[in-house]
């Protein structure tokens, strides 16, 4: 049963990811990305991490993707033609994009990883919250600082060009 669900989710994920990368219109890429995120959240759920799955939905799908959609709507005319997809562009991308993960997979297949779960049930929200505020207090604060900096930076970058007429 779980294998079946995982299979469906994998198909969903990779279909979405492929759409996100291969399709020529950015909007379609985004939809594909959203689809693959749903699949990914499902995979996290299969792994037993409800919280991470929900965060993937809430932040990646509800936050980042929506923001990307917003950016695309603000910046890309619908008729914009995507760059030509010539062999000299696809080939190196394919080479590196396949080569590097091939190396990784070869390495990890050669390695000896545990094959059975250590824990059936991953800890939930409460334990994660406690860990965030005790063991990982410092990185947690650092992340919040990073987010603050990112927000300020984003505002600053977006605002500066607003004052300038077409350059």
């Amino acid at each position: 049963m779980l294998d079946l669900a995982l299979g469906i989710l994998i198909v969903l994920t990779f279909a979405g990811a492929t759409m996100a990368v291969v399709l020529k219109k950015v909007f379609h890429n985004l939809l594909g990305f959203g689809l693959s995120l749903v699949g990914l959240a499902g995979i996290s759920l299969v792994l037993g991490s409800e919280f991470v799955a929900l965060m993937q939905l809430l932040i990646f799908l509800g936050g980042i993707t929506v923001a990307m959609v917003f950016a695309v709507m603000m910046s890309t005319p619908r008729e914009q033609s995507e760059e030509p997809r010539t062999a000299d562009r696809v080939a190196p991308a394919l080479l590196v994009g396949a080569g590097f993960p091939a190396v990784m997979i070869a390495l990890l297949l050669g390695g000896s990883f545990p094959t059975s779960p250590v824990t059936e049930e991953l800890f939930g929200v409460r334990e994660i919250g406690l860990a965030l505020l005790t063991t990982f207090e410092l990185p947690f604060e650092a992340i919040s600082l990073l987010l603050l900096a990112a927000i300020i930076g984003a505002v600053a970058v977006a605002r500066r060009t607003r004052e300038r007429p077409d350059g």
Binding site: L57, G62, V66
Partner: peptide, 23 residues
């Protein structure tokens, strides 16, 4: 167990229909 979070996660998704339609 995290029902409320799921609610908000899916609540965000409803936006998808709107921007897909509009776009």
């Amino acid at each position: 167990q995290s029902g409320l979070l799921i609610v908000f996660a899916f609540g965000g998704l409803s936006l998808g229909g709107i921007f897909m339609g509009g776009w």
